[in-house]
Simulated scan of single mutants.
Amino acid sequence: MTKADPRNNYLRGNMAVISTSTRYLPNRDLSFGKLLKYWRHQGGFSQLDLALASDVSQRHISFLESSRAHPSREMVLKLAVVLNVPLRDQNVMLTSAGFDPVYSEGDLLSPELEPIRQVIGFILKQQEPYPALVMDRYWNLIQNNSCCERLINWLIEPEKQLDNFYIDGKINLMRLMLHPQGLKPFIANWSEIACHLMQRVYREAVTAEESNEYITLFHEIQTYPDVIRVWQKTNLDSWQIPLLTVQFVKDNISLNFFTTITTLGTPHDILLQEIRIESLFPADKMTEVNLRTGEWGVT
Rank of each mutant, 00 (worst) to 15 (best):
T2M: 12
A4C: 10
P6K: 02
R7D: 07
G13A: 07
M15R: 14
T22W: 14
R23E: 13
P26D: 12
N27V: 14
N27I: 11
N27T: 12
D29T: 09
L30Y: 09
G33E: 05
L36D: 01
K37H: 13
Y38H: 11
Y38W: 14
Y38C: 02
G43I: 10
L48M: 14
L48Y: 15
A51N: 12
A53I: 07
V56M: 15
S57P: 11
Q58I: 10
Q58R: 14
S66L: 11
S66G: 05
S66C: 09
S67H: 12
A69P: 03
E74P: 04
P86M: 06
P86L: 06
L87Y: 02
R88T: 03
D89K: 06
N91K: 05
N91R: 04
M93L: 14
G98I: 08
F99H: 02
V102T: 12
E105M: 09
E105F: 02
L108M: 08
L109E: 08
L113W: 09
I116T: 07
Q118P: 00
Q118H: 07
Q118T: 04
V119A: 10
I123R: 01
Q127R: 09
E128L: 05
E128N: 07
P129S: 02
P131H: 00
D136V: 02
R137N: 05
W139R: 00
L141E: 01
I142G: 00
C147N: 01
R150E: 03
R150H: 11
L151E: 00
I156A: 05
Q161V: 10
D163S: 12
Y166L: 13
Y166T: 10
I167F: 11
P185L: 10
F186L: 05
I187G: 04
N189K: 08
S191E: 15
R200A: 11
Y202E: 08
E204M: 14
T207F: 04
A208E: 02
A208L: 02
E210L: 06
S211D: 15
Y214H: 15
T216Q: 12
F218Q: 00
I221S: 00
D226P: 03
D226V: 01
V227L: 04
R229F: 09
W231G: 00
Q232E: 15
T234L: 08
D237W: 08
Q240A: 13
P242I: 06
L243E: 15
T245V: 13
K250R: 15
K250D: 05
I253C: 12
N256I: 03
T260Q: 14
T262N: 15
L264K: 03
D269V: 09
L272D: 02
Q273P: 05
E278C: 08
F281M: 14
M286W: 06
M286E: 15
T287Q: 01
L291D: 00
L291T: 00
L291R: 01
R292T: 08
T293M: 12
G294L: 08
G294N: 10
V298N: 12
T299R: 11
T299D: 08
T299E: 10
